[in-house]
């Protein structure tokens, strides 16, 4: 078992606090920065971005539209305007390259809530969890796409979608949105570990599918250095994605984390005192320089 009281200490000792939290800090800056871009308009009257994550217009020229919500609208029978179609194509292209679930870890405001819940679970030692399958999110995704077809009343998922509700709440006015946010927080804290983002959220599932062939991936190219401290498994929101890449060396499995469940959040990179992980492309070869046995073999070949 990983000692939760000393989680991350090795990394801080090896790299210093800033480097041991580099990607976490950048991620929070990204999440808050995106909110700030939407907020300077209504607060200061300087309009950089209008709208919200469902559809936005940046500097009156760049349209960006959420493909999941537009798909639901189309399924309920609407013909979107050209700007929405351009917006969707741009968003799809972006996430196709950087990985769909970058939306989850770098953009979505709910991530800050569920990360807080995960952190508190570790701090408070809460171990209760219910057995909700990680595949439930795909069923939920199917549900969001079937409902507009069979029930009159349109984009029904948007009536309760915590992701769009929280973002819209912050930008346009909270109302009772905090109740929904609190519900997600408590669900993740007490009911199910990584319950919302990792098991149920259909928005994440949709972006997951978009990014299944994405170019930007985390890799364990330095996996020979791994000292089995297991801390990456503790902080990773989708720990099932790590094992093949980190431990599959003997079976000839690529060190690249290819599962599209990976959110490219970079927590594993931060937490690792041995710098096993790094961002890279889809095909990254293993670093052999620091592995004496491999190096020896290579020398023999030469």
């Amino acid at each position: 078992m990983v000692d939760l009281t000393t989680l991350g200490d090795d990394s801080i000792a090896a790299k210093g606090w800033i480097k041991a939290h580099k990607w976490l800090i950048l991620r929070r800056l990204s999440q808050l920065g995106i909110l700030a871009l939407f907020l300077v308009g209504p607060v200061l009257g300087v309009w950089i971005v209008k709208g919200n994550l469902a559809s936005s217009l940046t500097l009156d020229i760049l349209p960006l539209t959420d493909p999941h919500v537009l798909l639901q609208a189309v399924l309920s029978g609407v013909v979107p305007e050209t700007t929405a179609i351009i917006g969707v194509v741009l968003v799809l292209l972006f996430y196709f390259v950087v990985g769909g679930r970058v939306y989850c870890s770098w953009v979505c405001p709910v991530n800050m809530v569920t990360d807080l819940a995960s952190w508190l679970r570790r701090i408070l030692g809460i171990r209760t969890t219910s057995q909700i399958s990680r595949n439930s999110r795909y069923w939920m995704l199917a549900l969001t796409l079937i409902l507009p077809l069979v029930v009159s009343g349109g984009i029904i998922w948007e009536l309760i979608n915590p992701v769009s509700m929280m973002f819209r709440g912050i930008v346009f006015g909270m109302g009772a949105t905090w109740v929904v946010v609190l519900a997600v927080f408590l669900f993740d804290l007490v009911v199910a570990k990584e319950g919302w983002c990792g098991r149920l959220c259909p928005v994440g599932a949709f972006y997951n599918l978009i990014g299944s062939r994405s170019l930007l991936r985390v890799n364990a190219s330095n996996r020979a250095e791994c000292n089995d401290c297991m801390e990456c498994f503790v902080v990773c929101p989708e720990p099932q994605v790590i094992r093949p890449a980190l431990k599959g060396g003997s079976k000839g499995i690529s060190p690249v984390i290819l599962s599209s469940d990976c959110t490219n959040c970079g927590r594993c990179i931060d937490i690792c005192a041995k710098d096993v992980f790094s961002y890279g492309g889809r095909s990254v070869s293993e670093t052999i320089r620091s592995n004496p046995e491999v190096v020896k073999k290579q020398e023999v070949h030469i």
């Binding site: 308009g41 309009w47 209008k50 709208g51 919200n52 469902a54 559809s55 936005s56 217009l57 539209t65 959420d66 919500v69 537009l70 639901q72 609208a73 309920s76 029978g77 609407v78 507009p148 009159s152 009343g153 349109g154 984009i155 948007e158 769009s164 509700m165 819209r168 709440g169 930008v171 346009f172 006015g173 909270m174 109302g175 009772a176 949105t177 109740v179 929904v180």
Partner: peptide
């Protein structure tokens, strides 16, 4: 009924109203 299927709740109409008389329904409204 059609409107609820077509509106993606982005709030761009609200932002572009020069008289600021449009609002988005909040949770609980």
């Amino acid at each position: 009924e059609d409107f609820l299927g077509a509106c993606i709740r982005c709030g761009l109409c609200v932002r572009d109203c020069p008289y600021d008389m449009l609002f988005l329904g909040e949770v609980g409204d």
